[in-house]
Nucleic acid binder design. Sequence first.
RNA 1: GGAGACGUGCCAGAGCGGCCGAAUGGACUUCACUGCUAAUGAAGGGUCUGGGUUAAACCGGACCGGGGGUUCAAAUCCCCCCGUCUCCGCCA
Length: 425
Amino acid sequence: MIDLSVLRNNPDVIATSQTARGNDPQILADAIAADSAWRSAQAEFESYRAEQNQFNTRVKTASKEERPALIEQVKELAAKVKAAQAAASEAEAVAKAAVYKIENVIEEGVPGGGEENFVTLRTHGEKPEFDFTPKDHLELGELLGAIDMQRGAKVSGARFYFLRGVGAQLELAIMQLALNKALAAGFIPLITPTLVKPEIMQGTGFLGEHADEVYHLPQQDLYLTGTSEVALAGYHADEILDLSDGPIRYAGWSTCYRSEAGSHGKDTRGIVRVHQFNKLEMFVYTTPDQATAEHERLVAWQEEMLKDLGLSYRVIDVAAGDLGSSAARKYDIEAWIPTQNTYRELTSTSNCTGYQARRLATRYRTESGKPAPAATLNGTLATTRWLVALLEIHQRADGSVAVPEALRPYLGGQAVLQPETAGKR
RNA sequence: GGAGACGUGCCAGAGCGGCCGAAUGGACUUCACUGCUAAUGAAGGGUCUGGGUUAAACCGGACCGGGGGUUCAAAUCCCCCCGUCUCCGCCA
């Protein structure tokens, strides 16, 4: 949710941002109108209520004889209060709904335009030249006995898979490496619930435009989270945090569920786009003035991970039109996938400024002691998809895969993953 | 799954339908006292929000798990939901 005082006093700031995002100007106009209608309805209710409160003190101090007459008089006022209150809360609901449609004000410097208008901030690593025809991650995964899509489909359907043997080990290795990095940087590890209540899903903004990508259990009215960000953002809802010792950083591990509605036919091969995967997510609560610097730190930690795994990548500054509604700015890191001859997103980090925290009522105390909305940031530190880049880029002609040094301690020291004989699989 | 109890401010814990934004402890902040700490004494605090002011002062409204209802008036009465705890049963 955007800052209402900005909406009221400085709507131009919002208008500029909305334009950069390519959003309908009517959204802002509607919100302003609904907000002012709510405020006047609220003022009307409050003045009636004030009158009634005064009357009530007279009633309670009145003598037994006077009382019935006074009560008779105030009845009409009570009815007005009730009606005004109903009108005010109706107006509030309308205003809230209108205001929620406004997306976060983008940070200065965010490139304009849509998905294709991102700016590449930097690249790292070589695109490998193979003197053999490189195999894709699934072919490699099958040779290694690491990825089993057929049985995934048999058990759960399309876009499900089993990670087996070194595949399972490899995922856990990446997660552990990431977790250890996070711990070293002062993150608190958190294993989060993956089923959440509607109000949390709603509050974190995931039931907006992308509601159809979310799994829902109607019988229990619970939602399966597509990222631990949901639980991490809800974790401190309705709380006042102590940020005087610096940011509070969580490393949330969870399985993530995505229905991938609307992506039929895209990335159908392998584990690039699946319904279920694991992710270690960084989530930070900090003060608004620290948020931009923290965002840079998050992307730096992500880059460190990719470097450790020997991946080639580029860091992109996502264009305004391609930002999520909560993000003021977003950096994606995309790794080079040899067989696709392109970069694919492995991480994403967003600075949500006070947008998420405002709706979830997560605040901190400013130096003057006043509570103010905290800033929240999130970023990927490892996911199952990383296996795709890892397998492909470190493959060798015989189908074996070199293990980057940083991962070896988590794989019992193995330096090379060797193909299994077909019969065993 | 069955039975019951409870949810009040930072914490503990009172609360008769109006005198309750809420007793009393503790913690906290400030001041006093003491050579310092401790102890003691005094004072002060919540959150959201409208108006007002340069800023205050000041004047309103809302908030006692959440949502409805009864009433002139609800922390207090009624209903629903959520959560916690205890006992019994069952399962891992």
